[in-house]
Design a binder for these strands. Structure first.
Lengths: 125, 125
DNA sequence: CAGCATCCGGAATGATACTG
DNA sequence: CAGTATCATTCCGGATGCTG
């Protein structure tokens, strides 16, 4: 074996690895997918929270801020009477939707196989 | 907004979410990708460790065991003089390579954009 | 409504050393 | 070579309460 192709390695700090880090945080990909698939790439905090069963206000805010820092979305503060903040996908965020969608679809397509290995109620993390 | 498509939701315990959990563990996807791209789907422990810069023996073993439990690969113990253990991708594991490859490729394709937001030496996680 | 400040239990990762 | 056993550390993610 050892058919070293082009550069199929995993040096630390390589781009692919930074992509994986985006998935390391529990909600990132779900927020991204929801923002795109259910809200056309733009939504407010409350709406997002309602679209994501189980997420807490804290984690939602934290995730959104991290994603903003990662350049996946932008944050727009509107009026100030009742704070209205909107989050919108950036071009990078928009492109990142694609891989996420693929993962999502793969999950659905392989739901059966995944069910078999389901015996992990108190799953990791 | 609110263009609720087919079933683009994230109910807890849905298949897509269980897929994401596979990425929650740091090394899973890297082991999978390495096993496929560099070792044709079958390799021994030591070889894998040498192919994954930075992984510890402990984490490698743990990751491999988890992946075995998840049905992504099988474990074959050969002789016993010097223990020789081989890990081989299962059909499910083989199918899972596809999405992982896509993420990998996406990272390479968007390396520039990812580099811009790189100012995170002591990155998250 | 949006967000921040804290406190906290537990999980994930890692360094090191030992066994067969 | 493969794996296990400790010990230490990081920090994720949930709960709760407060601010404007």
């Amino acid at each position: 074996m050892e058919r070293l192709s082009a550069d199929e390695s995993w040096r630390e700090d390589c781009a692919p690895r930074r992509v994986l880090e985006l998935f390391a945080t529990k909600w990132t990909s779900m927020v991204l997918h929801t923002l795109h698939a259910r809200h056309a790439g733009c939504a407010r905090t409350g709406v997002l929270q309602r679209s994501l069963p189980g997420i807490s206000k804290k984690m939602l805010t934290q995730t959104l801020r991290d994603m903003e820092a990662s350049g996946l979305l932008t944050r727009h503060v509107a009026g100030t009477v009742p704070p209205a903040v909107e989050y919108r996908l950036t071009p990078l965020g928009g492109r990142f939707v694609e891989p996420v969608e693929i993962l999502y679809a793969w999950g659905r397509a392989n739901a059966d196989a995944l069910d078999d290995l389901k015996p992990r109620p108190t799953s990791r993390r």
